[in-house]
């Protein structure tokens, strides 16, 4: 057990290290650097040389990578390309806002998804299941910018219940983002509920069809007791990993939703940084989001390991 946990931790660390190499190498290979982005048209001759000397860009790439990685390990992500602002302080409030959005969406979505998934799974192939599953396909596949536009149109423009965009700047207190956060949370909830419920449904169907549940049914164990005591604890274990993937996706990938609702999170910062070719900020965001992705998945794996005794043997180890 301890060996398996250590192995997972090591694999996670290797992945994060590889990510940092990919990010750094990617930015190295692409044409242009922080100085050409900052100086734009004037990026030539002495001016460019001076700027490169200032930022230490003429040193070998390997040295700069070590510098960058060592700094990042200590929480120092460098300064943005346009000058003096430390990236750590720029990213801090954005990260908090993205976490707030993710937390709200999870708090609303996960219970909804599990209840619907279990109901659909228990009533497999019944009318209720068809209803839930069809709605899930629709809400899962409709692009975020389409569902966001529809929600803004209905709840903001026509009914006037909630604001259609968030106007508060990034560093305002959390309370400033309500009630503007309601619609973005709704859009994200639509997407994630569908993903999680489909998985929970499949898992419930599988467990209910398994030999031990059939045996319990034949022995005359009351249905409720079978569902609550025998089936659900096993059926819901795989949900941990799907929820983890959802958390990782919420922290890093909700660029479109943040742009549509003008929400000042990491996603909008990503797109601004890429448009401005602010490479140090792009690198920092990529590293943070990728680490969060690896960390959350690691946590989910460890949690399933603790909760599921069957995974503790070496033969059941997942590659």
């Amino acid at each position: 057990m301890t060996r398996m946990i250590l192995r997972r931790l090591l694999l996670g660390a290797v992945t994060v290290w590889l990510v940092s190499v990919i990010i750094f190498a990617g930015v190295e290979i692409l044409p242009g650097d922080a100085c050409t982005a900052f100086l734009e048209r004037e990026a030539k001759g002495q001016l460019l040389a001076n700027c490169r000397a200032d930022l230490g860009l003429e040193r070998p790439a390997a040295l700069r990578y070590l510098d960058w990685a060592w700094g990042a390990l200590q929480g120092d992500l460098g300064v943005s390309a346009d000058g003096q602002e430390s990236i750590a302080s720029l990213v801090g409030s954005r990260l908090r806002n993205s976490a707030l959005l993710a937390a709200c969406a999870l708090a609303v979505g996960v219970p909804m998804a599990i209840v619907q998934g279990v109901v659909a799974g228990l009533r497999c192939d019944g009318p209720l299941d068809y209803g839930i599953s069809s709605l899930a396909i629709v809400s899962m596949t409709i692009p975020e910018f389409v569902s966001a536009t529809v929600l803004i149109l209905v709840f903001s423009v026509w009914l006037g219940w909630v604001p259609g965009i968030v106007v508060a700047p990034a560093d305002y207190p959390v309370s400033a983002f309500f009630p503007g956060i309601i619609l973005p949370v709704a859009v994200l909830t639509l997407l994630m509920v569908a993903h999680i419920l489909r998985m929970v449904r499949a898992s419930v169907i599988e467990v209910m069809a398994s030999d031990y549940v059939q045996m319990a049914l034949l022995r005359g164990v009351p249905y409720r007791r079978i569902v609550w005591k025998h089936a659900l604890p096993n059926a819901l274990l795989p949900a941990i990993n799907v929820v983890a993937l959802t958390v990782a996706w919420l922290l890093g990938g909700v660029v479109v939703v943040e742009v549509v609702f003008n929400y000042p999170g990491l996603g909008r910062m990503t797109i601004d940084a890429i448009s401005d070719r602010d490479l140090p900020v792009v690198q920092a965001i990529a590293l943070i989001v990728a680490s969060a992705y690896v960390g959350v998945n690691l946590l989910a794996d460890l949690l399933s390991l603790v909760l599921n005794p069957r995974l503790r043997t070496h033969t059941a180890r997942r590659a």
Partner: peptide
């Protein structure tokens, strides 16, 4: 190879695409 795949998958898709497309 699988570690490299993991590393690529942990980066947000839109960031990977946008960096190349903008460049």
């Amino acid at each position: 190879l699988m570690r490299i795949v993991d590393a690529f998958l942990s980066l947000p898709w839109i960031l990977k695409l946008l960096v190349l497309v903008v460049t």
